[in-house]
Write a protein that binds this DNA or RNA. Sequence first.
DNA 1: TTTATTGTCAACCATTTGGTTAAGTATTGC
DNA 2: GCAATACTTAACCAAATGGTTGACAATAAA
Lengths: 112, 112
Amino acid sequence: MVNNKSTQLDAVFHALADPTRRAIIARLAQAPCGISELAAPFDMTLAAISKHIKVLEGAGLVVRSIEGRNHTCQLDTGPMLGGMEWLRHYENFWNQRLDALVTALNTDDTTA
Amino acid sequence: MVNNKSTQLDAVFHALADPTRRAIIARLAQAPCGISELAAPFDMTLAAISKHIKVLEGAGLVVRSIEGRNHTCQLDTGPMLGGMEWLRHYENFWNQRLDALVTALNTDDTTA
DNA sequence: TTTATTGTCAACCATTTGGTTAAGTATTGC
DNA sequence: GCAATACTTAACCAAATGGTTGACAATAAA
């Protein structure tokens, strides 16, 4: 059962280890969005974005709802809308605090 | 300059996306440690652990100090010993909060 | 000086990743 | 019915990952 948690963490961190996917998350943090609209900013095929979204789905970070031919992605589903703000907090946390951490460690590294 | 931050984030998340490396971090959070001692719990060659440690070093999460033939790894360097506790906080954060998030999203997924 | 210990490095291997193109599936609109 | 729209899927590809083995380097101990 530790294994279960572990593999989910693997999936989450792996999902976050790609700048395109982090950008998708950042985009979805503002509002739910269709696939094509999500893909628009990227110099990449729709198929590639489709794959990225599946990775995010696999990690549980993105949920898809299908209406007709339109797939809408959001960072969580209806019953958990409150969690979205929470995720944005983490996104800030990751981008700012972690960056500060890494910078500090690197600076320290040059000092040694 | 966003790119710089981005690639460092890539490195950090990628480093964390492997259970062996997370275990190494958890181990180092308790105390600095030599490579062999670090490798002991794992059913893996020393060379493999050596590679993992280099990944952690590349992400700035682990710093190595060499004394004779012994390489000692720690989660940060001397001038930043205070940061170690900080890192452990993040480790707890990641393992518990993120796991809760993922679990919640997955539960929600089955509900939809 | 010889031997054991600590660890790296290089070469190799199978698998995964991240991208492409091309074709296919639904749905929508004319 | 036919064409456009919104996506997925499959097949492929180069590069990265995560592991192995085996040879090497450097230090410590005998």
